[in-house]
Amino acid sequence: MGGDVQTGENEWFYSEEVKEHFFSPKNIFTSEEEAKNYTADGEGMVGSPACGDVMRMWIKVDPKTDRIRECKWRTFGCASALASTSMLSVMVTENGGIKIVDALRLKPGDIIKRLGGLPARKIHCSVLGDKALRAAINDYFKKSGQFSRVLHAEGKIIDPEVNVSDEDIEHAVLEGARTIEDLQKRLKVGIHNKDVLPKVKELIAYYRKKHFGE
């Protein structure tokens, strides 16, 4: 009965650029080994698998020029999310690497423009890339001791000594922190400044409930 049916050519919802980055993603790890041994200057992760999108970014920064030298990423999500992260990794490393100050100014719209547009209902799939990058840059600031440069765009600072915001705590909980000890391993929050501990514990409980229903 096979001759009875005809399957026509398919129409694509995505631009050529999206397809290119989706099918041939740039700046990815090519083996598990490479990912495991990669030492980044800064690393950030945003999103949750339950929401359908998770993005993780690793950056290497040239301290002399303050430019991003390398950017690796991993993304759980649809074609828009994958292509957006891939394009972002190209945008921050091309032409000798982007200045940190310029990287922090990148917005989802810049990525979408470079991708040749996205279907309207797919825009929300691309809004995490710049957040993941910002998280990686913030992590770099903290790891390299540049606490004064740490940004808290939408967050409220909980521990001014290490510049940790409620947003940082939320990200740490999303990354798996469950206790104050877990959190301190990642953020060094409240180690000297013990007065903030009750507030930090309250926030952990709040974000655990918010994201995991615990």
């Binding site: 790890f29 992760m45 993005m55 990423w73 991993r74 993304t75 759980f76």
Partner: peptide
Amino acid sequence: RMISPVRV
């Protein structure tokens, strides 16, 4: 999976 950060 190689480009996914999630490990359920």
